[in-house]
Design a protein around this nucleic acid. Structure first.
Lengths: 184, 184
DNA sequence: ATCGGCGCTAAGCGCTTGCTTAGCAGGTAA
DNA sequence: TTACCTGCTAAGCAAGCGCTTAGCGCCGAT
């Protein structure tokens, strides 16, 4: 599975052959089929595991505080660090959905909806509490997730910024986007 | 080329066959090769045209005003509308770069750098003029582009928001991100 | 000592891939 | 009329694809 993650992230699902994955894992192509039903099955398992982990990450970040402001910072920080450090896996999670079978795609889409609900909840509670101010909490929360997801696209390990530095800056941007005061 | 755009956007470069493109264009597979050297050549032409158009769009948006605030609004609005309305082409432009040959990729990367420079210029001039305030103009301008690019990933024609509505909201978010006052 | 099963490989099957070849209808010009 | 374009198709080639089959070495249990 690790070899599949590497290949899928580098060349895309359709650009990867079962021989690529097998040689990356130091095996013959036939050995893959002892453990996995098909190439799509591999993608499905990788995608599901990645989505579940991200959902849990977001949920536990929300649970660290009762203050929407702290929740937002925690979620954005965790989300951005994950998409930077784990950009290899995150690319598969976010950019290879079209290669999933319709049933598998629907399963994954359900997890994505729950992630969106978590973010939306944070923003809406902040607005209700009067500490955030935004004309459309729905679109703003979507933009916050969008910003984090896209980190996986442009982030490079050899780049000038560490994941933590990006996450800190993005935390500040997030506070501004929801109309919270810059610093306590 | 229009048929190739459709197929590449829907299934990715490697997921698309020359027979897909040909039947989409109402031709036999061999007819493609009268006009294009290879499948990669098609991708290259589509990608280059898309990048050049985006660069020109950004440049002309910047040229509409001398005020960094107005420039930012114009660039973000044009950029977001383009990535929403033209999400089919924008997906190829942004998510199929890995399928280009090394030489073609370098050519495209140069155009992308010029787009980034335009956005960075707007933010930096705003900071210099004292109308924007951000701890890292470089990262902030990258985040602004990132937000616009990712619209192409999640936007759906049948969604609740029009491209103009998204662009308006994103303009407001952009002003907040660079630390400009919300309204004049 | 012998067995069954696990994890693997060598070989390859049937099909699809990107692309090529040979040739043909219709239009243009001398 | 002849010659030659342009834009196309039918057919197909070599290579690569996802996946299967047959079989082998190893190991713990009997």
């Amino acid at each position: 599975m690790a070899a599949a993650v590497e290949s899928f992230a580098a060349k895309g699902f359709h650009g990867t052959t079962t021989r690529d994955i097998a040689s990356g894992a130091g095996m013959s192509p036939a050995a893959l089929y002892v453990h996995h039903r098909s190439k799509e099955d591999l993608l499905h398992q990788i995608s599901r595991a990645g989505h579940v982990e991200t959902l849990e990450l977001v949920q536990s970040a929300v649970a660290t505080s009762d203050d929407p402001r702290e929740q937002l910072l925690a979620v954005v920080h965790a989300f951005v660090v994950r998409h930077a450090e784990g950009h290899t896996g995150a690319r598969i999670v976010n950019y290879e959905l079209h290669a999933l079978s319709p049933e598998h795609l629907e399963e994954i889409a359900a997890i994505r909806r729950r992630i969106e609900q978590e973010m939306r909840g944070v923003v809406e509670r902040g607005v209700t509490a009067g500490v955030f101010s935004t004309p459309d909490p729905h679109m703003t929360s979507l933009a916050l997730l969008s910003l984090g997801i896209d980190v996986a696209r442009w982030y490079r390990d050899e780049g000038a910024w560490t994941p933590a530095e990006i996450a800190d800056h993005y935390g500040e941007l997030a506070l501004r986007m929801v109309g919270a005061a810059s610093s306590p």
